[in-house]
Computed example of a mutant assay.
Amino acid sequence: DHDAYQEISQNTKQLVIDYLACGIEPGEDVIIYPHSYVPEANQLMIPFLTLVTSAELERNPTVKEEIQSGLENGKMKTVNAGMLTYPVHQACDILFCKGNVVPVGKDQLPHIELTRTIARRFNEKFCRDAEPVFPLPDALLSKTPSILGLDGSQKMSKSRGNAVMLSATEDETAKLIRKAKTDGERHISYDPVTRPEVANLLMLISLCTNEAPEAIAERIGDGGAGMLKSTLTEALNEELRPVRARRAELEKDPAYIQSVLLEGSRRARDIAAQTLSEVRAAMNMVI
């Protein structure tokens, strides 16, 4: 987002701290890197863009939703080409390392389908008499592939201001949850169809406690929204307490965070350079 460019570096480092605090550690099979530090992956954009039509980009439902949300909340005044081509950027991130399984939320499924389309079209066009360069990646969904934000109307997202951040304190978390949207019915029941806001909060509790949302609803019963929100606050703060403690320690070591990003960038570039060489060979662009 060029309008928030002054925060890009800090936001990147904060996200890495989140990953590390949650246990996603760099290792033989784990690389953490910033997209902009892998130019070889970005070079895949040009051939990939020739494999999709403008109509396919314009009707991507996730992109359309993001554009509508940005225009409505005033964060976006015009729709730039970067927004429309974002799914192709994502395809570059997936295919440069020949990813075959991608953990995503339900809203990202159109992006994965476009990535599969790009991989298939590249292989069909440039690898007719050779081994395909790219796999066709599959999406990996969790048991909760879509989580509503605390406002109850859209997916949970930092940019939409309806999320609980790992960096939030326990008091800040409690304050955010108190503002969460429910409905006018006092008795708590789990009904994702007719009571999506209440069901969403119940599911969040379930994710923290491993108790079925139906059982949580039955236990709260006539306790109403107040009891529902206090139960979620307690469960979420309990679940995130060790993560936040680890996060606080990591924030004291900016040199380590920088080393993770720089080493990850070096390793990612090695992989991307090899893939780019294969792409050039397949397209008969080797000199």
Rank of each mutant, 00 (worst) to 15 (best):
A4Q: 10
Q6S: 15
N11T: 06
N11G: 14
L15F: 13
I17W: 04
A21E: 07
A21Q: 05
P26L: 08
P26C: 11
Y33R: 06
S36R: 03
S36L: 15
A41K: 06
M45F: 07
E65P: 08
E66Q: 08
G70Q: 07
G74W: 12
K77S: 12
N80K: 14
N80Y: 10
A81T: 10
G82A: 03
M83S: 06
C92A: 11
D93A: 14
N100P: 10
V104K: 10
G105T: 03
R120M: 14
R121P: 15
R121V: 03
L136Q: 09
P137Q: 02
D138Q: 14
S142M: 09
S142W: 14
T144K: 09
T144A: 15
P145Y: 13
I147A: 00
K155N: 08
L166N: 04
T169G: 05
D171N: 04
T173A: 07
L176I: 14
L176M: 13
A180L: 05
E185L: 13
Y190L: 09
R195N: 05
V198R: 00
L204A: 04
L207Q: 09
T209I: 01
I216G: 01
E218T: 07
E218D: 10
R219P: 04
R219I: 02
G223T: 01
S230Q: 13
L232C: 09
L236M: 06
L236W: 12
E239W: 12
R241K: 08
P242W: 03
A245C: 05
E249G: 11
E251T: 02
K252A: 15
P254S: 01
Y256R: 15
L262F: 00
L262D: 10
L262S: 11
S265A: 11
R266H: 12
A268G: 04
A272F: 01
L276P: 02
E278Q: 15
E278Y: 07
E278K: 02
V286F: 02
